[in-house]
Amino acid sequence: MTTPPAVTWREMWRITLSLAVTCVIAGSVLGLCFTLTEPTIQSHHLEEEARMVRQLLDLDATASIVQVRRYVEEGTSPRVGYLLPDGYHRYDLEGRPVDATARPETLATASVADLDQWIALTFPGTHAVGRFFAGYHADGALAGYVTEASQYGFKSHIRFFVALTPALAIRGVEVIAHEEDPGLGAEMTKPFFKHQFAGRSRESLARLAVTKDPLPSARRAVVVAREGIPYAAWQAAYGAALGALDRQPIYAVTGATISSRALTDGVKQAVAHLHHRLQVVHMTAIGGAHVPFGSACGYFLVHPASLGPRTRSSPLTPQRAKPLEPPPQRRCAAGPWGPTEVSDE
């Protein structure tokens, strides 16, 4: 009688060693490859993002883009924080400024990941939840904003950028990532749908509805013309046709009403949120003055760097959680949008 040969200790040892050695080699190869490629991948990613933002705002390479990151701090007194060019500003849930911490000199050229880490270490329980970009022409004038948002579509989240003028009218919408069905929901990324948002004012969005009617050919011609040309040129060419835009609904993609509604709702919310957030950060003007939102010397209306000494006189200090001083009164031309110079009489 023969019994099958038992697995010997020696055999088991060999199997274990064989697998362990394979895993060690595999892990080393992966680790080495990751270390070598990660910085390049990250910089490609940032370049691509900057390129997209520039393109959405019709800016050239000389323009500068400021990324504003938003954080939430959990705990007994929850805070919302914004990483602005001069430092990290915290607000309570009603949007009232709480304190501000200057960005350390050592982090002047730090990567986004390093800045996130700095904030997480300084204020435990804080994590990044979103961001938006402000784009400036070479002369420092504000070109517009780009905000990132996402909305649940038919299958999964649709992630998109909304580009806005300084007055928060929509310049364009660009879908970054989605998993909608090809031929149906995925059609929303095509010019005839995504450019239906272009030219609409923030105020008109509240009444914006989605209809299942087919897109009229006259409207289609105006919408499709937006593709590939600067916003200003498109407006100049179709300004008359855009006059009645506020009464134009969004014409849904045939067979993809859910995706169309999702993107429309997402854009409406993204603009409303950006409006609110800009109001919040505008409260903390350069120099500590509380400047009404929309005034010429508000935070994002001129490039922070072009303000020069005012940034220096900011009450921001490197110490943690220093309360803001009561705002000194500063003259600001409240009213018209845009980078008009403040008149100091």
Binding site: A26, V29, L30, C33, T37, T40, I41, H44
Partner: peptide
């Protein structure tokens, strides 16, 4: 899995 990951990372970088 190692080859897939290596190609993925190299392609993303290069």
């Amino acid at each position: 899995a190692v080859w897939v990951s290596v190609i993925d990372m190299l392609c993303a970088a290069v």
